[in-house]
């Protein structure tokens, strides 16, 4: 029944999905943390930027952002992110689009974590002479990360599934392969089931492991 699967590089496609997800997750975590730092920081200009960024980017459909990286950044502005062949360029553009989009959600998940840290602790940290950056790095963010593990897991699961949008600019990940298989085989339900199963294999353990981790690292108050 699943014989046709052998004709396609299913593992290769999912490997691309994993690469998209992992690279975007790392990038979003870094950029999202920077955005959150801006939004809670003392500089009005940066606070304004962080707020404007989040409220703009999270409200734009991901497809539009990904298409913009390809049509706008690459084809109009000629940005190729240091790659020469189309395949690599598109992959990198997709990662960039996913980072730009997902970081706005990471920022808000982290900010909800920051809100769980009592204000008094930041005051105490300032009172012993720590700078704003040190207060954030040594006192606020370590606790904020721990209490935002579960909302972060939601963001990561959404990101893994969002990687399918990269198919819109021709990145050879699982969703693009699915489209190709559906065009070639008369097995719509089976193909969908195989791809869906592949995503569940990626996302279910992610949710379970991070849920467990969230409990384990929770800060006792």
């Amino acid at each position: 029944m699943f014989d046709f699967v052998k004709d396609y590089d299913l593992l290769g496609a999912f490997w691309t999905t994993v690469q998209l997800a992992v690279l975007s997750a790392v990038g979003s975590l870094i950029w999202g943390t920077a955005l959150a730092a801006m939004r809670v920081g003392p500089v009005p200009l940066m606070r304004g930027f962080g707020t404007a960024y989040v409220n703009t980017v999270r409200n734009i459909p991901l497809t539009v952002i990904i298409l913009f990286t390809s049509l706008g950044l690459n084809q109009t502005l000629g940005i190729s992110l240091g790659a020469n062949d189309v395949e690599t360029i598109n992959f990198r553009l997709a990662v960039l689009g996913l980072i730009l989009y997902t970081s706005s959600f990471v920022c808000e998940a982290l900010r909800s974590g920051i809100n769980t840290v009592p204000v008094g602790q930041a005051e105490a940290a300032r009172a012993i002479g720590l700078s704003f950056g040190q207060v954030l790095r040594h006192v606020v963010l370590p606790q904020a990360f721990r209490s935002s593990v579960v909302p972060m897991a939601n963001v990561l699961i959404a990101l893994i599934k969002n990687t399918t949008v990269a198919a819109a600019i021709g990145v050879a990940e699982a969703a693009l392969l699915m489209k190709e298989m559906i065009e070639n085989e008369a097995q719509l339900l089976l193909i969908s089931a195989v791809i869906a199963f592949g995503f569940v294999v990626l996302t279910l353990p992610t949710g379970l492991i991070l849920g467990w981790l969230g409990k384990k690292v929770a800060v006792k108050r």
């Binding site: 009592p118 008094g120 602790q121 105490a124 300032r126 012993i128 006792k220």
Partner: peptide, 16 residues
């Protein structure tokens, strides 16, 4: 601030 010690009503120890 480092030269001015402060003790709060709610202790405010770093919980982590």
């Amino acid at each position: 601030r480092a030269d001015v010690g402060m003790v709060f009503q709610s202790f405010n120890l770093f919980a982590h």
